[in-house]
Design a protein around this nucleic acid. Sequence first.
DNA 1: TAGGCCATCTGGTCCT
DNA 2: AGGACCAGATGGCCTA
Length: 256
Amino acid sequence: MDSDAGSNSSRSSSPDLVVDDSMGSFFSNKMFQAYCQEEGAARAAGQGRADRCAGGGKSKTRADLKEGDDVQDLRLKVNGRERKRMHDLNQALDGLREVMPYAQGPSVRKLSKISTLLLARNYILMLSSSLEEMKKLVGDVYGGSGAQSRTSHPRITLPAPTAHLPLHPLAQNLHSLVGSTASVLHHPSPPPAPAPHSPPSASYMGFHHAPVQSLLKDPLHLASSYRHFPGMPCPCSLCQPLPTTTSTLHSFSMGK
DNA sequence: TAGGCCATCTGGTCCT
DNA sequence: AGGACCAGATGGCCTA
């Protein structure tokens, strides 16, 4: 609902572009018109670019061409760089979408940019809190009766930075802990099987029906995103105070 | 048809 | 000077 299905691929990459074959490059209609108007005004009595813009004129001086081409070339270069920059940005966003707990596939609507960013943020917060919970659990299991007290969590040196680790191990641990069942995302087609190196799908993580929407609305609204199993640890905000402060996040060395 | 989302253009600003 | 980054404007596409 919040994103175009084929916003990038199906849509023309240059909605208002026309091809100027003589230049071998693209002009926007707006730019072309402005260019024509400007030139037309400057050369009200002349036969400069205005004629070209009108579609007919072929008589143009060498100076006209040079001056115009300089401006055009500069503008085209700048536009091209900006286009590339935005494409790179979108590529990065696509990469982010790929690792998000959101069903992906041709029949699934792509997350919008803002949704991707919001979901990513909350996903990170959720993983952080889950990791903390796992640390506590491991401490309870292995350190409970030993020298390490139950109240003070043992030092567990986890392989830091999940950022460059596949997310599956963590997800599988969560899966076994939380006991995810077939809570399925609301999408028209069955969710694709997770790729070997893809993150867990929302259903895999135990998300409920509208996890994405809820994740997007409330920065910390993890409660509605989890199934609750009596006696089982749950990383949701209702079952535990979320240690999701910036300091918490910073406590995970992200290897940057 | 209105609203959301998006790509692109464009001018300004800052940095190297 | 040239490039990167940013934000505003514009127009197209899609959905409710």
